[in-house]
Protein backbone atom coordinates (compact mmCIF):
# COMPACT_ATOMS: atom_id res chain seq x y z
CA UNK A 1 0.00 0.00 0.00
CA UNK A 2 2.67 2.47 1.08
CA UNK A 3 4.81 1.62 -1.95
CA UNK A 4 1.97 2.29 -4.33
CA UNK A 5 1.16 5.55 -2.53
CA UNK A 6 4.77 6.71 -2.73
CA UNK A 7 4.92 5.83 -6.43
CA UNK A 8 1.89 8.03 -7.04
CA UNK A 9 3.40 10.84 -5.02
CA UNK A 10 6.69 10.68 -6.93
CA UNK A 11 4.73 10.77 -10.18
CA UNK A 12 3.00 13.92 -8.94
CA UNK A 13 6.38 15.49 -8.20
CA UNK A 14 7.60 14.70 -11.72
CA UNK A 15 4.40 16.16 -13.18
CA UNK A 16 5.03 19.36 -11.24
CA UNK A 17 8.40 19.79 -12.94
CA UNK A 18 6.90 18.99 -16.33
CA UNK A 19 4.25 21.67 -15.80
CA UNK A 20 6.96 24.20 -15.05
CA UNK A 21 8.95 23.39 -18.17
CA UNK A 22 6.25 23.41 -20.86
CA UNK A 23 5.23 26.40 -22.90
CA UNK A 24 2.12 24.82 -24.41
CA UNK A 25 -0.67 25.72 -22.04
CA UNK A 26 -2.89 22.88 -23.27
CA UNK A 27 -0.19 20.36 -22.35
CA UNK A 28 0.16 21.88 -18.90
CA UNK A 29 -3.61 21.67 -18.45
CA UNK A 30 -3.54 17.99 -19.39
CA UNK A 31 -0.76 17.33 -16.89
CA UNK A 32 -2.71 19.06 -14.15
CA UNK A 33 -5.81 17.06 -15.07
CA UNK A 34 -3.79 13.83 -14.84
CA UNK A 35 -2.52 15.02 -11.50
CA UNK A 36 -6.15 15.42 -10.45
CA UNK A 37 -6.85 11.77 -11.32
CA UNK A 38 -3.89 10.63 -9.23
CA UNK A 39 -5.05 12.86 -6.36
CA UNK A 40 -8.38 11.08 -6.48
CA UNK A 41 -6.65 7.75 -5.79
CA UNK A 42 -4.77 9.01 -2.73
CA UNK A 43 -7.75 8.94 -0.33
CA UNK A 44 -8.41 5.33 -1.35
CA UNK A 45 -4.83 4.38 -0.45
CA UNK A 46 -4.46 6.44 2.71
CA UNK A 47 -7.60 5.22 4.39
CA UNK A 48 -7.54 1.64 5.46
CA UNK A 49 -11.24 0.98 5.05
CA UNK A 50 -13.22 1.99 2.00
CA UNK A 51 -16.15 3.73 3.64
CA UNK A 52 -18.66 5.88 1.83
CA UNK A 53 -17.13 9.31 2.66
CA UNK A 54 -13.76 8.20 1.30
CA UNK A 55 -15.30 7.05 -1.95
CA UNK A 56 -17.27 10.27 -2.23
CA UNK A 57 -14.16 12.33 -1.66
CA UNK A 58 -12.25 10.40 -4.32
CA UNK A 59 -15.11 10.83 -6.76
CA UNK A 60 -15.38 14.55 -6.02
CA UNK A 61 -11.64 15.07 -6.39
CA UNK A 62 -11.53 13.33 -9.75
CA UNK A 63 -14.64 14.95 -11.14
CA UNK A 64 -13.68 18.48 -10.07
CA UNK A 65 -9.90 18.50 -10.33
CA UNK A 66 -9.53 16.18 -13.32
CA UNK A 67 -12.63 16.86 -15.41
CA UNK A 68 -14.60 20.01 -14.58
CA UNK A 69 -11.84 22.54 -13.97
CA UNK A 70 -9.58 21.41 -16.84
CA UNK A 71 -12.55 21.58 -19.21
CA UNK A 72 -13.29 25.15 -18.10
CA UNK A 73 -9.67 26.05 -18.72
CA UNK A 74 -9.60 24.37 -22.14
CA UNK A 75 -12.74 26.26 -23.07
CA UNK A 76 -11.20 29.56 -21.99
CA UNK A 77 -8.12 28.73 -24.05
CA UNK A 78 -10.23 28.03 -27.10
CA UNK A 79 -12.25 31.23 -26.71
CA UNK A 80 -9.09 33.26 -26.40
CA UNK A 81 -7.31 31.32 -29.16
CA UNK A 82 -4.00 31.11 -27.39
CA UNK A 83 -1.65 28.16 -27.32
CA UNK A 84 1.65 29.18 -25.85
CA UNK A 85 2.84 30.99 -22.79
CA UNK A 86 4.85 34.04 -23.75
CA UNK A 87 8.41 34.17 -22.55
CA UNK A 88 7.99 33.90 -18.78
CA UNK A 89 9.66 36.04 -16.15
CA UNK A 90 12.31 33.35 -15.77
CA UNK A 91 12.88 30.88 -18.62
CA UNK A 92 11.41 27.38 -18.75
CA UNK A 93 14.66 25.58 -17.98
CA UNK A 94 15.58 27.83 -15.04
CA UNK A 95 12.07 27.40 -13.68
CA UNK A 96 12.43 23.59 -13.84
CA UNK A 97 15.68 23.94 -11.93
CA UNK A 98 14.00 26.22 -9.43
CA UNK A 99 11.20 23.67 -9.07
CA UNK A 100 13.74 20.90 -8.50
CA UNK A 101 15.45 22.98 -5.82
CA UNK A 102 12.06 23.62 -4.20
CA UNK A 103 11.33 19.88 -4.25
CA UNK A 104 14.70 19.04 -2.68
CA UNK A 105 14.11 21.74 -0.08
CA UNK A 106 10.68 20.30 0.70
CA UNK A 107 12.16 16.80 1.16
CA UNK A 108 14.86 18.13 3.50
CA UNK A 109 12.46 20.39 5.37
CA UNK A 110 9.91 17.61 5.90
CA UNK A 111 12.74 15.46 7.26
CA UNK A 112 13.32 18.08 9.93
CA UNK A 113 9.67 18.43 10.94
CA UNK A 114 8.34 16.30 13.76
CA UNK A 115 5.76 14.02 12.15
CA UNK A 116 3.20 11.77 13.73
CA UNK A 117 4.28 8.13 14.12
CA UNK A 118 3.23 6.41 10.90
CA UNK A 119 3.77 9.38 8.58
CA UNK A 120 7.52 8.93 8.31
CA UNK A 121 7.12 6.13 5.75
CA UNK A 122 5.12 8.08 3.20
CA UNK A 123 6.10 11.06 1.11
CA UNK A 124 2.82 12.88 1.77
CA UNK A 125 4.25 15.83 3.68
CA UNK A 126 7.23 16.58 1.38
CA UNK A 127 5.07 16.14 -1.75
CA UNK A 128 2.46 18.50 -0.36
CA UNK A 129 5.02 21.19 0.45
CA UNK A 130 6.84 20.74 -2.87
CA UNK A 131 3.60 20.97 -4.85
CA UNK A 132 2.56 24.14 -3.02
CA UNK A 133 5.96 25.68 -3.79
CA UNK A 134 5.85 24.65 -7.46
CA UNK A 135 2.35 26.08 -7.79
CA UNK A 136 3.59 29.31 -6.32
CA UNK A 137 6.54 29.45 -8.75
CA UNK A 138 4.19 28.87 -11.69
CA UNK A 139 1.84 31.54 -10.39
CA UNK A 140 4.40 34.31 -10.00
CA UNK A 141 6.59 33.66 -13.05
CA UNK A 142 3.94 33.40 -15.79
CA UNK A 143 2.35 36.32 -17.56
CA UNK A 144 -0.73 34.77 -19.16
CA UNK A 145 -3.68 34.99 -16.82
CA UNK A 146 -4.69 31.40 -17.56
CA UNK A 147 -1.22 30.09 -16.65
CA UNK A 148 -1.51 31.84 -13.33
CA UNK A 149 -4.81 30.09 -12.72
CA UNK A 150 -3.12 26.76 -13.46
CA UNK A 151 -0.43 27.68 -10.94
CA UNK A 152 -3.13 28.32 -8.38
CA UNK A 153 -4.64 24.93 -9.17
CA UNK A 154 -1.30 23.18 -8.58
CA UNK A 155 -0.96 25.05 -5.30
CA UNK A 156 -4.40 23.83 -4.24
CA UNK A 157 -3.43 20.28 -5.23
CA UNK A 158 -0.54 20.50 -2.77
CA UNK A 159 -2.88 21.56 -0.01
CA UNK A 160 -5.23 18.72 -0.91
CA UNK A 161 -2.37 16.23 -0.50
CA UNK A 162 -1.66 17.61 2.97
CA UNK A 163 -5.31 17.29 3.94
CA UNK A 164 -5.03 13.54 3.36
CA UNK A 165 -3.21 13.32 6.70
CA UNK A 166 -6.18 14.75 8.56
CA UNK A 167 -9.09 12.40 8.33
CA UNK A 168 -10.96 13.31 11.51
CA UNK A 169 -10.33 17.05 11.33
CA UNK A 170 -11.95 17.58 7.95
CA UNK A 171 -15.43 16.10 7.91
CA UNK A 172 -16.86 15.33 4.50
CA UNK A 173 -19.08 18.40 4.40
CA UNK A 174 -16.17 20.76 5.02
CA UNK A 175 -14.00 18.95 2.50
CA UNK A 176 -16.80 19.31 -0.05
CA UNK A 177 -17.06 22.99 0.83
CA UNK A 178 -13.37 23.43 0.07
CA UNK A 179 -13.80 21.69 -3.29
CA UNK A 180 -16.84 23.81 -4.12
CA UNK A 181 -14.96 27.00 -3.28
CA UNK A 182 -12.09 25.92 -5.51
CA UNK A 183 -14.42 25.14 -8.37
CA UNK A 184 -16.43 28.35 -8.11
CA UNK A 185 -13.21 30.32 -7.66
CA UNK A 186 -11.74 28.99 -10.90
CA UNK A 187 -15.05 29.43 -12.66
CA UNK A 188 -15.33 33.10 -11.65
CA UNK A 189 -11.69 33.66 -12.49
CA UNK A 190 -12.16 32.24 -15.98
CA UNK A 191 -15.12 34.56 -16.54
CA UNK A 192 -12.94 37.50 -15.56
CA UNK A 193 -10.18 36.22 -17.86
CA UNK A 194 -12.67 36.17 -20.69
CA UNK A 195 -13.50 39.82 -19.95
CA UNK A 196 -9.83 40.73 -19.72
CA UNK A 197 -9.38 39.14 -23.09
CA UNK A 198 -12.22 41.16 -24.62
CA UNK A 199 -11.30 44.45 -23.00
CA UNK A 200 -7.57 44.31 -23.59
CA UNK A 201 -7.50 41.97 -26.64
CA UNK A 202 -4.96 39.94 -24.75
CA UNK A 203 -4.65 37.66 -21.77
CA UNK A 204 -1.29 39.08 -20.82
CA UNK A 205 -1.36 40.36 -17.25
CA UNK A 206 1.36 42.86 -18.09
CA UNK A 207 -1.41 44.89 -19.71
CA UNK A 208 -3.03 45.26 -16.30
CA UNK A 209 -0.87 48.09 -15.05
CA UNK A 210 -3.05 51.15 -15.33
CA UNK A 211 -3.79 51.14 -11.61
CA UNK A 212 -0.16 51.36 -10.55
CA UNK A 213 0.75 54.02 -8.02
Amino acid sequence: MTNLLNTILVTILVMNLFALGTSRILAVTRVVAAQGVLLGFIPLLVHKSLVMPVLLMAAAAISIKAILIPSIIVRALRDAQIKHEVKPLIGFLPSIILGAIATAFALLFAGQLPLAGNHYDTLLVPTAIATVLVGFIQLVTRYKAISQVIGYLILENGIFIFSMLLVEAMPLIVEMGVMLDLFVGIFVTCIIINHINQAFSSMDTRELVSLKE
Binding site: A116, V132, F136, L139, A145, Q148, Y152, L155, E156, G158, I159, F162, S163, L165, L166, A169, M170, V178, G185, V188, T189, I192, I193, H195, I196, A199, F200, T205, L208, S210, L211
Partner: peptide, 27 residues
Protein backbone atom coordinates in the same frame (compact mmCIF):
# COMPACT_ATOMS: atom_id res chain seq x y z
CA UNK B 1 -11.57 44.30 -14.50
CA UNK B 2 -8.01 44.90 -13.46
CA UNK B 3 -9.04 45.45 -9.84
CA UNK B 4 -11.19 42.30 -9.85
CA UNK B 5 -8.35 40.25 -11.28
CA UNK B 6 -5.87 41.45 -8.67
CA UNK B 7 -8.40 40.89 -5.91
CA UNK B 8 -9.11 37.35 -7.04
CA UNK B 9 -5.49 36.36 -7.53
CA UNK B 10 -3.96 37.97 -4.43
CA UNK B 11 -6.99 37.03 -2.34
CA UNK B 12 -7.12 33.40 -3.51
CA UNK B 13 -3.43 32.78 -2.92
CA UNK B 14 -3.63 34.40 0.52
CA UNK B 15 -6.66 32.41 1.46
CA UNK B 16 -5.04 29.20 0.13
CA UNK B 17 -2.17 29.79 2.55
CA UNK B 18 -4.73 30.18 5.32
CA UNK B 19 -6.13 26.76 4.38
CA UNK B 20 -2.66 25.26 4.63
CA UNK B 21 -2.29 26.97 8.01
CA UNK B 22 -5.61 25.51 9.13
CA UNK B 23 -4.36 22.04 8.19
CA UNK B 24 -1.07 22.65 10.00
CA UNK B 25 -3.08 23.51 13.09
CA UNK B 26 -4.99 20.24 12.83
CA UNK B 27 -1.70 18.42 12.33
Amino acid sequence: IEATWKYLMVGSVGIALALLGTFFLAY
